[in-house]
Computed example of a mutant assay.
Amino acid sequence: MFSLRADDDDRIIGHFSDIQGFFAGHTDALSEFDSEVNSSAEGGFWAHPRLIGPDPSGALQRAWSTQGDSGRALGNLWIDIHDTSGRTIGSYFAGAATQEHWEKGGDGTAVATMSCWLDSLPEEGAYEVWKSWSRRPPSSLNDWVSLPPGQREGWIEVARKRRGVVGKANPRREQYTLDGTHIVDLASFYCAIGEAMNGPGGYYGSNIAALDDCLFGGFGPAAPFRLVWESSEVAADLIGGLPTYLPNASVLDLIINCLERRGVSVEFA
């Protein structure tokens, strides 16, 4: 399901079936309005993931030459996620990677531990989403609704990092429909608008700044267009009262202002 790939020459270092200590982020979508959370994330994070699984080619073992041979620099790497056919469906950059430990159990299972720099911690909820999408990508709208609040940020992360999302050139239409039935928090808004603009499993922003970027194109249709927001009263009740860093402005106010500033005509239905 996973592989390590060298950043400089795309050389595959090895494959592994599981990873621990990597999907460890617990970001609330509202954290963009929390100055303490944002300041603590500046500069990135050091992580120590454990790569687990059979290593029939021995390539991963050769990267970790012997047990206890720690401190060996591996350079900048990519951790690739694969579907059941072996196709790469997403990737995470792991900078300044260094091997820490290697061991192999009696059953032949390899366990390699490394340290690496990440610009942000991958969402804990993304782990199960990647596993699900590796078997079958979403083919219908609102599959994310089954995820409990707190794990939908993981869905958004996978939608953003899924291979082929950046630069996606969808034909622009004059009107799009946003199903607001299930928008019960800020993360569910980004799940819903991603699918409104780009279909099942689609991405169209994960915070106000990212939404603003998407409106210029690159992650789907660019403004201007008309957005018909169905069942808008659900969001008005549940996220309309969420405060922000601005006085007398709710999260919903900022979303609407962002859309309208870029030429989106929002029609509440």
Rank of each mutant, 00 (worst) to 15 (best):
N207V: 00
S232P: 06
P49L: 08
F216G: 12
R136N: 15
W102G: 13
A223Q: 08
D55Y: 08
G241F: 11
G167N: 13
A236G: 02
T109I: 13
Y176C: 02
V158R: 04
L51N: 07
A223L: 11
S91E: 13
I13Y: 15
D212E: 10
E153D: 11
E124T: 15
T177W: 09
N38K: 03
N248T: 06
R261N: 09
L4W: 01
D9R: 02
L121T: 05
G125S: 05
S31N: 02
F93P: 11
S188N: 05
G58I: 09
D9C: 06
I193F: 07
G75K: 06
D34N: 13
T88V: 15
M197Q: 06
P122T: 07
G95C: 02
L77F: 02
L141K: 11
A169H: 12
V165Q: 13
R72A: 04
I79A: 14
H182S: 15
D83L: 10
M197Y: 07
T66N: 09
E100H: 08
V184G: 12
Y92T: 00
V251P: 00
L242I: 14
G220E: 02
P243K: 12
G194D: 03
A47T: 11
Y176H: 02
P137F: 14
A223W: 01
E153S: 13
S40N: 04
H182M: 05
D7N: 03
I239W: 07
W102I: 11
E267T: 04
Y203H: 08
R262K: 12
G21K: 01
L60R: 09
L252F: 02
L254T: 07
E260T: 12
G167M: 10
H26F: 05
W46G: 09
Y204G: 00
L74V: 01
E124S: 14
D253A: 04
S231H: 14
